[in-house]
Amino acid sequence: MAIAKAERLMNLALCLMNTRRPLSKRELRSSVEAYREITSDDAFNRMFERDKDDLRELGLVIEIVESLDGDTGYLARRDRNRLPEIALDAEEAAALSLAARVWQQARLAGAASGALQKLRAAGVPFETADDTGHAGYPHGVGGVIEPRIPAHEPAFEPLMLAARDRRPVTFEYRKANAVRPQTRQVEPWALECWRGHWYLAGWDRDRKARRVFRLSRIVGRVRSRSGGFTAEVPDHVDVRQTVETWAGEGATSTARIRLRRGAGYPLRARAVETVPAPGEWAADWDELEIPYGHGLDAWLVEFGPDVVVLGPQELRADVIERLRAVAKG
């Protein structure tokens, strides 16, 4: 729903709910700012009827009252439009609290804080912890384990708003093995965090296919484009499953790598086996066996000199090729 329409519906709902007597169309037209800008009576009547129907579909009970002089009035009585009592279990409350912490790093920080305060006032308990934890990893304070989801990428907020409003965007994107970024025209569908990084799923207009983009690889500003979506948005967008497949999650084969100690925590977390490296490598390196699937080479390149691929040979060759491409840039 466009922001302008949502604001207009909200203003109309507030007018209908905050009156003690039915209001006529003329009174509503003068009270709602968006209506005052319409000069044509026919255009106003059509918009008002559509807005009234939309509010009813959203659950607002609107009464129509005929006055003695034949004029029609409208109102929404508060006793007929009360929300049910808020009742959240511990898992639902934790999910809302975690979502609010993501918005603390975007423009919705004020709204998120206000929503949590209202829920607390309604008696919904929230476990909180201080901010001493490291972003992207769980930490505990006083026995409370609280996951942290960072949203520091500048592209997060414009993409989140564009996905919400169904607006296509343009941005410069640098692939892991690319020397220069390329322009991408994307219809954004959904954002999801996986292993401390945010990813966007959407329709790539130039490639005419669905794609997943890592936000940290977006260079410069995200620009909105006019017009709507050209591709159908799927009912379910599973960003994480796509990224996991690219990173080798669920793979049936394994790869052997050498990893510098104190580096590559995500790789260590997924290792099937970890042993000290032999010989001259023993002081500073470990050898890991990790799941091997499509896209693992691009992920390993991101760890730079902290990773040495031992096998299989095709993976080693792919990683070396990507590193050479980056070095040439």
Results as ranks from 00 to 15, higher is better:
312 P>V: 02
117 Q>A: 15
62 I>Y: 08
300 L>K: 02
108 L>V: 07
312 P>S: 04
296 L>G: 07
109 A>T: 04
265 Y>A: 15
290 I>A: 12
319 V>G: 00
166 R>L: 12
164 R>T: 08
1 M>H: 14
307 V>D: 06
274 T>M: 03
159 L>T: 03
223 R>L: 07
238 D>H: 06
322 R>E: 11
4 A>S: 09
39 T>I: 01
94 A>K: 02
252 T>V: 15
306 D>E: 13
18 N>L: 05
306 D>G: 02
320 I>Y: 12
71 D>N: 14
158 P>D: 08
160 M>Y: 03
156 F>A: 04
266 P>Q: 00
188 P>M: 03
231 A>L: 01
319 V>P: 02
326 V>D: 11
88 L>D: 08
317 A>T: 15
1 M>D: 08
299 W>T: 04
207 R>Q: 01
48 F>E: 04
82 R>G: 12
81 N>R: 04
312 P>Y: 06
282 A>M: 03
214 R>Q: 00
174 R>W: 10
157 E>L: 00
170 T>Y: 14
306 D>F: 14
22 P>F: 11
225 R>I: 02
220 G>Q: 09
93 A>Y: 13
80 R>E: 11
214 R>D: 02
164 R>H: 15
237 V>Q: 09
160 M>W: 14
15 C>E: 03
115 A>C: 04
5 K>G: 08
71 D>W: 11
25 K>F: 02
126 F>S: 04
107 R>K: 13
